[in-house]
């Protein structure tokens, strides 16, 4: 008899439990959290193929009091000195940072200001700036000629009309040629990771031997203080 009761309890209990489970599935479903982070904003202007600066065209001209003026329109009238940085009365927007190359007329021709001067006094136009830079930057010029240095866009095929080779001044400011440091575009932001939540990094140079020697030098042999 006890068995019969137990059997009934179990028999109906099974149905009851299964129905409760069904109800829970339907009305109290388990929620899945969404670990997908929000998309990050990216400055799309930085993603194009355009040169990062506007190089001086040939013949050169600059804007003076809203007028486009050719170099010689002024320089034919006014005399200007030879050694300039810091002492310029005009062209104040020029920021000089070209290492030991501080003399304007290392590059600009004294007589014809719309020309650039090569070694031996020969002059070239502003569109032949690589030849000028090659005066000092020999290896880089050689690399550029072979396509190793610099940037080629449009096509990888030699002779393709879409192909375009950037010259020195498409990327480098001739007066301050080194690239400036800048803020990088956003880093990875993948699932279960948020920006900046990157793994821990013990920065610094990994020179175990040097560190060990320094440690000994500072603390002596028996000192096991951390480096």
């Amino acid at each position: 008899m006890r068995n019969r009761v137990l059997e009934n309890v179990i028999g109906w209990g099974i149905s009851a439990v299964l129905l409760i489970l069904a109800a829970l599935f339907l009305w109290a479903p388990i929620q899945v959290s969404n670990p997908v982070p929000e998309p990050v904003d990216v400055d799309r202007a930085r993603l194009g193929a355009r040169p990062i600066r506007v190089a001086m065209h040939d013949p050169p001209s600059i804007e003076v009091a809203t007028f486009d003026m050719n170099c010689m329109e002024c320089h034919a009238l006014f005399e200007s000195g030879k050694m300039m940085p810091g002492g310029l009365q005009r062209h104040n927007d020029i920021e000089m940072g070209h290492g030991i190359n501080t003399n304007c007329f290392n590059c600009h021709d004294v007589e014809r200001r719309d020309r650039l001067v090569l070694e031996g006094g020969e002059t070239v136009g502003f569109n032949q700036v690589p030849q000028l830079c090659g005066k000092c930057h020999g290896p880089t010029w050689r690399d550029w000629q072979q396509g190793i240095h610099g940037k080629t866009v449009g096509s990888w095929r030699g002779g393709d009309e879409r192909q375009q080779r950037y010259t020195c001044t498409d990327c480098h400011d001739p007066h301050t040629p080194a690239f400036k440091r800048g803020t990088p575009l956003p880093g990875p932001n993948t699932i279960r990771m948020t920006p900046g939540e990157g793994p821990h990094h013990d920065d610094g140079v990994h020179r175990p031997l040097a560190q060990w020697i320094n440690q000994i030098a500072e603390h002596g042999h028996d000192d096991d203080a951390p480096p």
Partner: peptide
């Protein structure tokens, strides 16, 4: 028997 039934019920719940 009931132990068998309970065991199977338990497993069924986890399967579900």
């Amino acid at each position: 028997d009931w132990r068998y039934q309970l065991w199977m019920l338990l497993l069924t719940i986890f399967v579900l």
